[in-house]
Structures are given as structure tokens and as C-alpha cells.
Design a protein around this nucleic acid. Structure first.
Ligand code: FES
Ligand code: FES
Lengths: 144, 144
DNA sequence: TGTATTTCGGATAGTTTTATCCTATTTATA
DNA sequence: TATAAATAGGATAAAACTATCCGAAATACA
């Protein structure tokens, strides 16, 4: 469903949010360990999220990644997925036609659009805060 | 969502079904043209579907691919997807945890499972006959 | 000022997916 | 039987995705 990069990006963002909530900045090393992702690859993904203004980075000693406290609840999964995987999830035809078009639909268009809209809806309404809180309370997990 | 191989496989199967409906066997060349897929790659995918007993092939002059007329309505998209992409769509965790487990859920488990079940349901209940009939009646299209 | 820490960014390597090529095998028909 | 038409299958190539490496730049602190 999502690319590896996107999976890592979402999990990393949740972990950063969780810590930013307490005013703690986290390092790449800590993130990669906590979400069980390859360090160097995760670095690339985080750079991408920084460029898209989803997370902030601070270079140098005591540097790391953080999220504006006020932004945590307004950052939706959609923003992260769009930054990393682009909008192919949203716009593409399920069977690879050049464009997904009501007026020139592929055989599964109607059924596919239903499912895609569900996914879209989910990504647009799920924010980092709720996900981070579930981790904090031990309801959900980032690895294993 | 689906791999290219799977997209080609589904479209090819629909085209074969459409023709088998009229007792017509179709060649690889005709299939690739009709679904706008690379010929040699499509050949591999069709071989896969033949090995999985989803379609039949006949070698030699006047050979080609066909589907048992009585099977057209009982072949579900699920069978094709499983044959080509395996069951990763069904079993895997949306965020890449080793196993998708109620008792050790990732942060998006509940929401993800909902969507995955919708997809599963769709694939399990959609059969080749209905898709082929929509093509026949000009309601849907296999390419462009 | 010097050093350790840490992100940034370019280059490179490995793996999987997608795609192509060529030969062997099978079959209908002249 | 000879030939042409098709699928089968192995080998290979190209592209995309995943992952690693290393030096540059920035920053805190001694
Ligand atoms: S045209 Fe294929 S999903 Fe819309
Ligand atoms: S544990 Fe991640 S989707 Fe179920």
C-alpha cells in the first residue's frame, strides 16, 4: 500500500511528535532505533519532510528533529504521504489507465474509487497527535 | 495499490473472458494490443495465470488464451491478485510491522484494517463476468 | 578557538520490479 | 513432411526503490 519510505516517514513523524509534545528534540539515531528503520535511509526521508515544512531540524550538537507543538494536531497523515509518495495514491487509476476519469472509466473504477476515497478520508482526518497519544498510552507500537 | 504486473493481469483476464464468452481464443499479441501492455512482460504474467489454473493456454498455430466459459463468473479478482501479487495485500501491516496483530497493533491498525477489509471484500466479490460485460456494453474501457 | 556532535547532500551500491530478447516446443495446415 | 504460427521458458537488461558511505556544514560547549 505505502512505500517503505512512507512507512518509515510516518512512524518517524509519530515518534518526533510524541517527543516534541514534551519539548524534547530527538536525533536521527534515536528515531531510527525507535522505529526500526535503516539510519541513512531514514535521514533522506526526514530531509524530505523538513523540505516540505512538516518537521523542523536543528543542525549541530544537541540538534535533531522536532515539530512545532501547535502543529502536532494539524499535521495529517495525508501531508506526510503526499510529501513522500506524491499523490499517485489519490489520482491514479487502479488499473493503470493514463487518467482516472468518470467519463472513460476502467472496469473497476466505481469500486476502486470507493476504496480510494475511504483511504483518502482516513489520511485526511488522522492527525499526528492522536497517533502519538496512543503510543504514549501503550495502546499501539512503532516496531516489532 | 496493485503492481504493474497485476494491473496487466487483470486487464488481460477481462479481455480473455470477454472473448471466451463468444468462444473466441485470443493471442498474446492481440491481448497486449488491447490492454496496452508490453508483449513479452504480459507473456510472463499470462504464464503465471495459466500455472495457477485461472486461464488456459493452447500452443501452436491458432493457439492462444481462453477461459472455460463456465468459470468466467466464478473467477474473482482476488484469484488473479493472489496469483500475481501474493497475499501481502491481505496480511501485511500498513506500517511494516513484522505481523499485523490485534494485540500488538501499529498506530494506524484499526483504520488500516477497515480499508483493507473493504478492498478484500471488493476483490472477493467482483467476478470477471461483470467486468467483461461492462467492456462489451461500452460502459468501461481497458486502455488509454 | 578547537572539538565533538549532528544534520545535509552527493555519490554509490544492492535489491526488486518491470521489460526485452532469443531459443525451444507445440500445433494446424498446406 | 515441411512450414508457419503460437506459447514456454531461460537469460539478460533497464528502471525504480531501498539502503549505505563519506565528506561538508552548522552548532554547542569546553
Ligand atoms: S479509471 Fe480506473 S480507477 Fe478510475
Ligand atoms: S499492525 Fe499495522 S496494520 Fe495491523
Amino acid at each position: 500500500m505505502f512505500s517503505k519510505a512512507c512507512e518509515y516517514g510516518i512512524k518517524a513523524s509519530i515518534f518526533i511528535a510524541l517527543n516534541s509534545y514534551h519539548g524534547k528534540r530527538v536525533s536521527l539515531k534515536a528515531i531510527a532505533k525507535e522505529v526500526a528503520s535503516p539510519e541513512a535511509f531514514t535521514a533522506k526521508i526526514l530531509q524530505d519532510l523538513v523540505r516540505h515544512d512538516i518537521i523542523n531540524s536543528v543542525k549541530g550538537a544537541h540538534g535533531g528533529f522536532e515539530i512545532e507543538k501547535n502543529d502536532i494536531s494539524s499535521i495529517k497523515l495525508e501531508h506526510i504521504v503526499r510529501a513522500i509518495d506524491g499523490d499517485k495514491i489519490y489520482s491514479g487509476c487502479g488499473l493503470g489507465l493514463q487518467t482516472c476519469d468518470e467519463n472513460h472509466p476502467c472496469p473497476v473504477h466505481d469500486k476502486f474509487v470507493d476504496i480510494r476515497n475511504g483511504l483518502k478520508q482516513m489520511l485526511e482526518t488522522t492527525n499526528l497527535e492522536e497517533l502519538a497519544l496512543d503510543i504514549k498510552s501503550g495502546i499501539s507500537f512503532l516496531k516489532t
